[in-house]
């Protein structure tokens, strides 16, 4: 397996070149900034939650392919889900990335793009790139929870 097979799969490059849900939300429920101080990657996450459902997530990102693709896939995975379901997806994704023993991601078919990020596990320094959008989303959901 080459680096291109592991890390730079077509799915990832497609999300990088054409990030889904890229942009801003006017009057979001939460707006959170995520920074990776070591490499300087930055993103702003906008989140709208209505009646316990994640109605919309948008990202403005200035990051590498892994960071951008991971964020793009994340928005597709969580929009339309309840906050609880979204939290479950976040937890599953994070354990896939961080748990050495867990390689399979038990997710519905429409989210199988996320599995493309598994290759990132072979490159430990890049895991933080993949996690930045997810950690920022956790912060966003927590801040919405506190507003209640």
């Amino acid at each position: 397996m080459s680096l291109a097979d592991d890390l730079y799969r077509e799915t990832i490059l497609d999300h990088y070149h054409n990030p889904r849900n890229h942009g801003i939300i006017d009057n979001p429920s939460a707006k959170v900034e995520g920074v990776n101080p070591l490499c300087g990657d930055e993103l702003t996450l906008y989140l709208t939650v209505e009646n316990g459902t994640v109605v919309d997530v948008k990202l403005e990102a200035k990051g590498c392919s892994i960071n951008t693709a991971s964020g793009s896939m994340m928005t597709e995975a969580v929009v339309g889900k309840s906050v609880d379901e979204a939290t479950d997806i976040i937890n599953k994704f994070k354990s896939m990335m961080l748990d050495k023993n867990q390689s399979e991601l038990d997710l519905p078919e429409e989210m199988e793009d996320l599995e493309a990020l598994q290759g990132v596990k072979k490159y430990p320094v890049r895991i933080k790139c993949a996690l930045l959008p997810w950690n920022t989303l956790i912060e966003g959901l927590e801040s919405v929870g506190q507003q209640k």
Partner: peptide, 27 residues
Amino acid sequence: SDIHPHDLGQLLNESGVAIRAGHHCCQ
């Protein structure tokens, strides 16, 4: 072009080439 410097750094590493990518402590 639009390749992020970190991706470039990682891809060059595959060829045994060590470069640096990022803000170089000059934000």
